[in-house]
Design a protein around this nucleic acid. Structure first.
Length: 460
RNA sequence: GGCCCCUUCGUCUAGCGGUUAGGAUCCAUGGUUUUCAUCCAUGUCACAGGAGUUCGAGUCUCCUAGGGGUCACCA
């Protein structure tokens, strides 16, 4: 069975790039009816926070990516790691190193001065003497000293790293706490992960982890290293480039399905297809098709996708979503008229809410430029005439409202713009917005008349 | 700096030795719309550079350049 996992360290919010790797892992598991596990990498107790962990879980919930089984916390598994460390010590595959931090720093400096690669020199590898006083040793694993460490990366192909590039790295600190590369390998193996999909900043950790797998006789999983997401300039994505926290997208009015659709197409594709429902992603995704190259983050496409998903959302769904944007709409025929008049005008829920407010709220002010342009000449007379005819005809459908407008146009021998513009500004306070016929059908005669009279009062 | 990875329109990408190098987005223009948006149509725009292999190279090989990653008792 396919088992994948996402393993964030709880040091901050869930990053957009992290969400994409999580999505790839989730899809790989779902595609094969496998399992997607979540593991919190909190071995560095000083840097972890409960809030960060909750924020990550919240983001997963928002996008609807559920994990299988309980969340695994590494901080609760220290006994387990210790057991394996002891085993390696017993088997002489790992050893205690009494080098102090100061000595290590000196060694590094010497290597740097000689322009050599900085690496531990293995001086305690076969140490049998009396250990120096007053030093709590770290534990280092014996890495191969010659040859190549080779593995097949599902994205990048065969990767060969010279053994000399990997030193006897620390697997347990002086205080006994295990380190990252050790626990990752142990957990991935113990959790039976078959595919490890992660950012390619981990590519260089892979040979180290393979050392651990081999020392412990664990089965090595398939690795997939996904290239980074950069900003539009191709540089590392930072907060200056806009939203990097997944939850910011919710606040900005994006739908999770739009975000996911956007992310799945960053580094993966299926022919010319652009729109993928969650079901389609699951049935079509294969990690072997992940691109090698990094991709740049560009908001235009996300916006376009978001508009698409808003347009195609049901009224019920939009009503629910708009609650987060201070808009309480009841599920009624009127609401459904409002939504069909506005759905196609908002690229985000914020914009959609704004469009709806335009109709629902009595304008408290009139856009200066708009009123200057619209409320001039005979606008006042035309609006008055329209009001009279409106009361007389008492229309109820948008077609009927349109007929009233036509009648005014005909009688006054004017163009549609002569009535359309002032009417729009009177009703909405703005020169742009939904179709007038639709708006009027939503507002009803009384409300229309009230808004026109209010507008007429300020035209002088 | 050592090691490793990457390089097709501005951006996301298709391509897997023979294509007028395709799609999407953005942008521009036109149509639809009383406005704006939607929608529709059209257009501009790319194989980083150089050698080779081959009848033929975006596709294979090498070199160069550019970009990225990584070199912790952090994850």
């Amino acid at each position: 069975m396919t088992v994948t996992r996402f393993a964030p360290s709880p040091t901050g919010y869930l990053h957009i790039g992290g969400l994409r790797t999580a999505l790839f892992s989730w899809l790989a598991a779902k595609h094969n009816n496998g399992k997607f596990l979540l593991r919190i990498e909190d071995t560095d107790i000083a840097r972890n926070s409960e809030e960060a962990k909750d924020a990550i879980l919240e983001a997963f919930e928002w996008v609807g990516m559920s994990h299988d089984g309980e969340v695994v916390y590494q901080s609760k598994r220290f006994d387990l790691y210790k057991k394996y460390i002891d085993q390696l010590l017993r088997e002489k595959k790992a050893y205690k190193c009494y080098m102090s931090r100061e000595e290590l720093a000196i060694l590094r400096q010497e290597q740097m001065d000689k322009k050599e690669r900085t690496r531990y020199d293995g001086r305690y590898r076969d140490f049998t003497g009396t250990p120096p006083e007053g030093i709590d040793p770290v534990i280092r694993i014996k890495a191969p000293q010659e040859g190549m460490i080779t593995f097949i990366d599902g994205v990048k192909g065969e990767i060969n790293i010279a053994a000399t590039e990997v030193d006897d790295f620390v697997i347990a600190r002086a205080d006994g706490a295990p380190t990252y590369n050790f626990v990752v390998a142990v957990d991935d193996a113990l959790m039976d992960c078959t595919e490890v999909i992660r950012g390619d900043d981990h590519l260089y950790n892979t040979p180290k982890q393979i050392v651990v797998y081999n020392a412990l006789n664990f089965t090595i999983p398939n690795f997939y290293h996904v290239a980074m997401i950069n900003n539009e300039q191709g540089k590392k994505l930072s907060k200056r480039d806009g939203a990097t926290d997944v939850m910011e997208y919710k606040a900005l009015g994006y739908l999770p399905e739009a975000l996911l659709n956007f992310l799945v197409r960053l580094g993966w594709s299926h022919g010319d297809q652009e729109i993928f429902s969650i079901e389609e992603m699951i049935s079509l995704f294969d990690p072997k098709n992940i691109n090698k190259s990094s991709s740049n983050y560009n908001l235009d496409k996300l916006l376009w996708l978001n508009a698409h998903y808003i347009k195609n959302s049901s009224d019920e769904k939009l009503i629910e979503l708009l609650k987060d944007f201070d808009l309480e709409l009841e599920n009624s025929p009127k609401t459904s008229m409002i939504l069909s008049a506005t759905k196609e005008r908002g690229k985000t829920l914020i914009e959609l809410a704004k469009q709806i407010q335009l109709i629902v709220q009595v304008p408290t002010s009139y856009d200066e430029k708009a009123s200057k342009k619209a409320f001039k000449g005979e606008a006042k007379e035309i609006l008055s005439a329209f009001t009279l005819m409106l009361k007389e005809a008492n229309p109820s459908t948008k077609e009927a409202y349109h007929a009233v407008m036509e009648k005014v146009v005909f009688q006054k021998e004017i163009g549609f713009g002569k009535i359309g513009m002032p009417l729009r500004v009177a009703l909405l306070g703005s020169m742009t917005g939904s179709g007038l016929d639709e708006i009027m059908a939503i507002l009803g005669v009384n409300e229309i008349v009230a808004r026109i009279e209010k507008a007429i009062a300020i035209i002088e």
